[in-house]
């Protein structure tokens, strides 16, 4: 099995496990699922560099990071009762 295939399978497994776990604990906020998936993507691709070595993930990284920052910002503003 190619190194990249293993990396893809592991990344997929981690995202699925996190989604199932959040569903089982009754989480109903969609942004939590999205944030977890984004975090898993960044953490996994930082630890296992095989995916980054073989492709250019810069654009998707910027997009996902932007979405993550937006989610966190909105949540913080909601907690502070600003929105």
């Amino acid at each position: 099995m190619k190194r990249t295939d293993l990396g893809v399978i592991l990344l997929t497994s981690l995202i699925i496990i996190s989604s199932i776990s959040l569903t089982l604990v009754g989480e109903s906020r969609p942004d939590v699922y999205l944030s977890m998936a984004i975090l898993i993507h960044f953490v996994y691709t930082s630890i296992d560099y095989s995916l980054r070595m073989r492709s250019s993930l810069k654009v998707i990284d910027i997009a996902l990071f932007t979405v993550f920052i937006a989610i966190v910002t909105i949540r913080v503003l909601m907690i502070l009762n600003i929105i």
Binding site: I15, L34, H41
Partner: peptide
């Protein structure tokens, strides 16, 4: 909302896979 959340997770996965496939090169 649960289905929305799970779908968003898998959307992230799909987009990452698509980017990986489009920009793939053996170093």
């Amino acid at each position: 909302n649960v289905v929305l959340g799970v779908s968003l997770s898998t959307l992230v996965l799909g987009v990452v896979l698509l980017t990986l496939g489009l920009t793939y090169v053996e170093p």
